[in-house]
Design a protein around this nucleic acid. Structure first.
Lengths: 185, 185
DNA sequence: AACAGGTGTTTTATCTGTAAAAGATTGCTC
DNA sequence: GAGCAATCTTTTACAGATAAAACACCTGTT
């Protein structure tokens, strides 16, 4: 993006470290260099990207403890929440990743005994993937911990603000998926 | 994260494609499997991650046209907006990336004549990096186009909502940076 | 002055993800 | 039913990121 970086903490004022977020600093710098610029989008997109980066870094912790990367967990989660077998292609669509990436992850995960492959009887091109008992147990075991971690990460926001934020992000996401998600098809 | 994936578009109802975003579908699936689960954080974090992924994909377009990756552009942007030379270490901090990544990008960018290195006269460990005239022109040329692209991506939201969203994200980011960003030091 | 420890940068080994091609199989069309 | 385009999955080649080690240099202490 355009504003994911840190303002070069040019402390001159009170040197107070709690004077807005890093994106605000970046925007201020751009305004100083290009006074007329419409930096409005930066304040949303820059913050979304920065939040995503920080949250993902934090969320890694519970998963890392059980030796799972987030993409791997997303794959297992897709199988768990749909409740039935999925083909590699479906998994790729569910997790928004490439087919090649899914193949790699399946190799890894089936090596660890968390998922199983089964060939289709009718169409021998396709395989069906399902969670093993161990895989199901791992997802169910880590999920509450994961959600607790996420809740803690968001605890700085009040309950009403969390609702507002979720609503606004949902609106934006509907727009983006309608606009950008469709060309994917 | 936990909910970055697509709901297995089990079209049964009216098959209306405009029935909420993909994250809402994922949350609904989890609720069906684990009825008691507090899926509140998913609705924020999942959406942030999904928005980030879609926006980054879209934002690539203007940059790709001039053969620049976003991390490279972020590096050039940091030099442009601070207005002075930066060392590789400072660039790493500004762009939130590793020193090794900065080294690689500098090699690439200086090969293209967009940045120049200069050794420090006092401390021969450090080098100073500055934009060349071509680099400055490239940043200034692409930035308005980039921002126009971003504005278009956000145009689905009304002006007041954009302000609210920016404000809420700023609050969240302050919290996250205070909590997660400090251990980085 | 020599040394120890710290800092700034680069290199190396390794890992992950993707795009493009390959391989395998189906189903439609003539 | 033979051929051919389409579909699903995997493999291959390659670009990019990171962690850890290596390297170069500075600084304060003895």
């Amino acid at each position: 993006m355009t504003a994911t970086d840190r303002p070069s903490a040019g402390s001159d004022d009170t040197a107070g470290p709690a004077r807005g977020d890093t994106v605000a600093g970046v925007v201020r710098q751009w305004q100083a260099v290009h006074p007329g610029l419409d930096t409005g989008p930066m304040e949303i997109i820059g913050r979304i990207n920065r939040c995503a980066a920080l949250l993902q870094q934090a969320e890694d912790a519970p998963l890392r403890r059980i030796g799972l990367s987030r993409p791997e967990f997303d794959l297992l989660g897709a199988l768990r929440r749909t409740g039935h077998e999925l083909t590699p292609g479906e998994l790729a669509r569910e997790t928004f990743s490439s087919g090649a990436a899914v193949t790699k992850r399946l190799k890894q995960l089936s090596g660890r005994g968390l998922v199983e492959r089964r060939g289709d009887t009718r169409d021998r091109r396709v395989t069906h993937v399902r969670l093993t008992e161990a895989g199901r147990a791992m997802v169910d075991g880590i999920l509450p911990e994961q959600l607790a971690y996420e809740t803690a990460a968001l605890s700085g926001l009040g309950t009403p603000e969390r609702g507002e934020l979720a609503g606004l992000l949902g609106e934006l996401l509907v727009q983006l998926e309608g606009r950008l998600g469709v060309p994917r098809v």
